[in-house]
Design a protein around this nucleic acid. Structure first.
Ligand SMILES: [Mn+2]
Ligand SMILES: [Mn+2]
Ligand SMILES: [Mn+2]
Ligand SMILES: [Mn+2]
Lengths: 220, 220
DNA sequence: TTATATAATTAGACAAGACTAATTTTATAA
DNA sequence: TTATAAAATTAGTCTTGTCTAATTATATAA
């Protein structure tokens, strides 16, 4: 088993590896975790030593098979606990991330699987992120943002890209959650603002940043 | 908030303070936690510094009001999680202690209270230990052991004093759990062995050590 | 291509929490 | 009361995970 810090690094590296296309550098990891780059370099050495990652100055950091397997299990635990906190304990979706950040490190062979069963095998967490299965398979995740859509398109909110409290609370205020139907009415060329209608409500205008923070599911 | 180690020490000291009559020495704490006495002395200094305990060489260690308040909350979290693990996730009563030992350190202002509500405000944990209320009040705990009873007495198993896996598994095998009715039929003077009948079963003989590890509730 | 900014790395320090190996106190028993 | 055992304490070390400051390497822009 690995320490809490090692697990947090693995998870950060896993997350960066999902945002494909870019090199996973010490700086990138340092940005995700808020740690000093010097500390990151230390930990990289430790994780290479334990064969959880490879590090090549040219290619950056990559999870080994072992590292990948572990990272996925940590993410699984995190997301399952988030479902538990929201559905069973009645927390709001902007409160659960921080608590799950601790719960994910509880170690027991059967805990995640029991929790999974207790929650009736949810496929997505409250932010719309896929919950890896016990066998390591990960359900489909969404990648098209609201801002990507063509004018006129009707979509379903599938996930949020930003899990900060400020963003999630803003969504609560706008009455937007996972599953909400949104129609993109107009894109303002000047600054990328989006005119949308939420559910069956009147038109609202949101920023480009907002539109890029919501992942959607759409038929056409 | 306090570190995991500090919390474990507080809990150990709290536990020792419940077994009244005896002085809480570095040695005693070291025995409970399995730590080196030198480490215990270090931590005592730290906790005195943080005003969670008092230490007087003559009187031993004592929790301050602050320390007591914190210890009770940690115990509350531990026992609530134990109920959750047993009742909701289907663990057996010899498996839950180790996991709760980690879960008790998860910090969030409302977590314990939400869990308490979700579990419908249980008064006792799966080992029969009282679960402190949110306000710090602790339900009655039992103190009479099976070995204390007079021959012929019928009692109800209220709690176990020993939460080791070996003991709890032995109880499972004997079909004894919290609430089981036991009649003490005979005490063997030679070695304190007890002849008992469990529920409506035939007679069994158990050791004195066994009898001293079960706390009972009895009317007469 | 050379200057400059950014990133990576090294060196050295620190706090927490544990340990071992003395040493000093205190308790117990002859 | 004195010898011996047990407990408490001190001194010094170690590991983990972090940091700052200095240095080296790399990328970028004039
Ligand atoms: Mn975490
Ligand atoms: Mn999430
Ligand atoms: Mn604990
Ligand atoms: Mn218990």
């Amino acid at each position: 088993m690995y320490t809490l810090s090692e697990e947090n690094y693995l998870k950060a590296i896993y997350r960066l590896s999902q945002e494909k296309g870019q090199k996973i550098t010490p700086k990138a990891i340092s940005d995700v975790l808020g740690n000093n780059p010097a500390s990151v370099v230390d930990m990289i050495r430790k994780l290479v030593e334990k064969e959880l990652i490879d590090y090549d100055k040219k290619k950056g950091v990559h999870l080994t098979t072992q590292g990948q397997k572990n990272a996925v299990l940590i993410v699984r635990r995190h997301r399952l606990w988030e479902v538990f906190l929201l559905e069973k304990l009645g927390y709001q979706w902007d409160e659960i991330h921080a608590i799950a950040e601790e719960l994910e490190h509880i170690k027991d062979d059967t805990l995640a699987d029991r929790l999974d069963k207790f929650l009736e095998f949810p496929e997505y967490d409250p932010h719309g992120d896929p919950i890896p299965k016990a066998n390591g398979k990960v359900p489909k995740s969404y990648s098209v943002t609201l801002a990507n859509l063509k004018e006129g398109t009707i979509c379903r909110v599938a996930a949020v890209r930003d899990t900060s409290s400020t963003f999630l609370q803003y969504l609560l205020k706008l009455d937007i959650g996972i599953g909400t139907t949104i129609q993109l009415i107009e894109k303002i060329p000047f600054d990328g603002s989006l005119v949308i209608s939420i559910g069956s409500n009147d038109k609202t205008t949101v920023s480009q940043k907002f539109g890029e923070s919501i992942l959607v599911d759409h038929s056409n």
